[in-house]
Design a binder for these strands. Sequence first.
DNA 1: ACGTAGGCATTGTTGAACAATCCCACAAGA
DNA 2: TCTTGTGGGATTGTTCAACAATGCCTACGT
Lengths: 235, 235
Amino acid sequence: MRPEDGEAEAAAGAGLDADRERLARTSTAERVADILRDRITDGYFRPGTQLIEEKVTDALGISRNTLREAFQLLAHERLLVRRPNRGVFVREITATDVVDIYRARRLLQCAAVRTVTRSPVGLDAAECAVSDAEAAARRGAWDQVGTADVRFHQAITALGGSRRVDELMRSIGAELRLVFHTMTDTRGFHEPYLSANRRILDLLRAGDGPEAERLLTAYLNDAEAALLAHLQGPA
Amino acid sequence: MRPEDGEAEAAAGAGLDADRERLARTSTAERVADILRDRITDGYFRPGTQLIEEKVTDALGISRNTLREAFQLLAHERLLVRRPNRGVFVREITATDVVDIYRARRLLQCAAVRTVTRSPVGLDAAECAVSDAEAAARRGAWDQVGTADVRFHQAITALGGSRRVDELMRSIGAELRLVFHTMTDTRGFHEPYLSANRRILDLLRAGDGPEAERLLTAYLNDAEAALLAHLQGPA
DNA sequence: ACGTAGGCATTGTTGAACAATCCCACAAGA
DNA sequence: TCTTGTGGGATTGTTCAACAATGCCTACGT
């Protein structure tokens, strides 16, 4: 009955479902959100910074209403915080956030690892992320090591095979990058995990889920403790 | 330095952190979203219905911009779908959605169950939900049985202890209620799970995590199959 | 059956306006 | 010195009206 349901399979339009999203044009608010998201995740807007509506609308040449739609989008992604009648600020991650984030990661990532079988599939993205991290480390680009690390763990989570879970993990990854931007010694934080991630990947490829899970848990506990120490210290 | 950090503990304002949210007034857009969310989840707006901006603004006495903010909020919660230049519609859950949802539930809920110890805590909400479901069943209110079932499984997930995961599960629960509204034989669907949920709860209370997980997985597989059969059938 | 053209409804985006709220600095009082 | 009013200025919250852009539908011609 309805054109968008399942009738396409029968005719010549078979297998085009995956191309649907490429066809979707984005609204102005979404494009604005994309720009701001990039600026936040790459550290141009530091956590705590206020984004004043008038300034941004002038700089981007858009109307205030459109910008507010973009703000709301990013607030929903936890990259911005709206304080009513005071404005929007780049999110500042607290210690309780870190605790919750790592609790979520332990649940999500361990559950995902537990689904891998003897003949693991879909490890290409993880492999790519680990290689990128190692390459960035050789260049001394430790912030890029951080983003590659995030990508690696998103790839691990993706083994669970749920888009909804992946989306949550993507949001968590963005929050983590927010913390990274507040750190001074990025090398000291990221360097130990290069080999840890590589080992986890090898174990997964060998189909040794339980041991991979053990290493992953150790990594998560260690990283959580390091982040908490960082957040408690300079406060 | 900053007034909202930790200085309040010292003075007379100790222990007020928990009251912070009671003080937060909600914006108009959020309240509008609350209203629409209720109308959607209680089945007043059926899946597929278009929500026309002018009609809603007139009915609620708000401006178009504010309504569009509310729409965006609900679209982000997956209760509404925006089709560019065509309007917003109440979400219609498809078979692929159901598959993804149950994949996510298997990951989330099993991971949460696995965290319970010999002396389980925080089962009050689950107990309450099961009792409510049983009471609603005795009254023959099968739609309320459905919402209580959703609440039970949210309570299970909450054992994981992560706000972020809970939020995802809440969103999934709203999606499930959307499917329930498309069903005719709600009793036939929900009735078998009354005793299943009760048994899962008992096992959790006894601290028998592994057996609870086995039953939970069986429930999830069964419910998924039933929903898929329902969605494939009338199409 | 196919392509085209026009009309209509609806959404997308903008700009301006005004009210509500908050922050800050300064003054008054204990 | 510390606390408590009291403005003024800046910023956000919300509304309204207008116009452009888009998509759907129907009628028409081939």
